[in-house]
Computed example of a mutant assay.
Amino acid sequence: MDKNKLGIESLQAGKYEDAIKYFSEAIDENPKDPVAYINFGNVLTAVGENDRAINFYNKAIELDEKASSAYYCLGNLFFNLSQFSEAAGQFEKAIRFGLQTNDVYYMLGMCFVHLDNVRLAIPYLQRSVELEEEDVEARFQYGLALAKCEIYEEATKQFQEVIKKDSNHADAYYNLGVAYLGVYDKPELAFEYFTKALDIQPDHMLAGYGLKMIEKMKDPE
């Protein structure tokens, strides 16, 4: 049986020593195949050996400079280390060399969110949603980015779509409440959305604050 496949199965099962054994054998059998190096890097990432993982991903890139999966894995590693500029560079290379998944666009968009360049994040988050319309988190983050850039009508559409797909998404209800209170001046609707957010998540402090604001508007004294 293919050693890479056996290694992936072991990795998914959390059997890291077995995974390392299989990927090591795959490298020994075919030392010029970048896939085994990428897989080995994934095991090392899973056990927190980040420096060694980077070396294996870079080895895969040495063997194939268009190894988009290696760039994607490097991007995830840097992202998890909060090195967002480095992560963005790797995700961009993954896309340039042919990786066209909603995940890579989502991660690139989130890099720019963390780098406080939300406007630049928008097209990548939008593309992520286009590629996987059922990805609720990508759609929610897309809506947040739109709202932060004051593109309120489209943001509201995205939050509405989120609650259609996930009726228990408290943060989407909260953000709809914010929009209807602060943008559309419809406190009655905002009240409903804030209440729904609190029904789902009773400790949602921001939704509770939103309700208090509406109560003060009704009774200024």
Rank of each mutant, 00 (worst) to 15 (best):
Y16A: 06
S85D: 15
S167K: 13
G109A: 07
E17D: 09
D103K: 02
P187K: 11
Y184L: 13
D199Q: 15
K218F: 01
L74M: 13
I151H: 13
A70K: 06
A170L: 11
V118A: 07
D28H: 02
N58E: 15
L44T: 05
Y174L: 09
V129K: 05
N80L: 13
D18I: 01
P202I: 09
A190R: 13
F91I: 12
V162S: 12
D18C: 02
L44Y: 06
K218G: 01
L144F: 01
E65F: 11
A147I: 03
T195M: 13
L176T: 06
Y209W: 13
Q90T: 01
A155L: 07
D185Q: 09
T101S: 14
E192C: 12
A170D: 15
Q126A: 10
E65I: 02
K148M: 10
T45E: 08
F56T: 00
R52V: 04
Q141F: 14
E161H: 05
T156L: 15
A87P: 00
C149W: 03
E161L: 06
L144E: 13
E150R: 11
Q160P: 01
M1E: 00
A172H: 13
A145N: 14
L198K: 14
D135P: 00
A179R: 15
L11T: 03
D219T: 15
A13V: 04
A70L: 06
Y106T: 03
E62D: 14
K165Q: 12
G182S: 15
D18Q: 11
L63N: 11
F23Q: 02
F56M: 08
L144N: 08
H169P: 13
N168I: 00
R96V: 00
E221Q: 08
E9N: 06
G109L: 03
Y124W: 05
D171E: 14
L176C: 12
N39S: 04
K165V: 13
I151M: 15
F91Y: 14
S10H: 09
L108V: 02
N102C: 09
I163R: 13
V162A: 14
Q90C: 00
A46P: 03
F40H: 11
Y209M: 15
A94P: 12
E150W: 10
F40W: 08
S128Y: 02
Y173G: 10
Y16K: 05
G210A: 12
A145E: 04
K5R: 05
G98M: 06
L198H: 06
Y16H: 07
N58P: 04
A13E: 09
Q90K: 01
A197H: 14
V113P: 03
I8H: 07
S69P: 00
D219P: 01
L181N: 14
A36E: 00
A190T: 14
L198A: 07
L74A: 05
D203W: 07
M110D: 08
I122Y: 12
G143D: 10
C111K: 02
A197I: 13
E154D: 08
E130F: 07
Y105E: 06
G182M: 12
I163L: 14
T45L: 05
I27C: 10
Y16G: 03
H204L: 11
K93D: 04
D103N: 08
E86H: 03
K5L: 10
I200F: 10
A170K: 07
N175A: 14
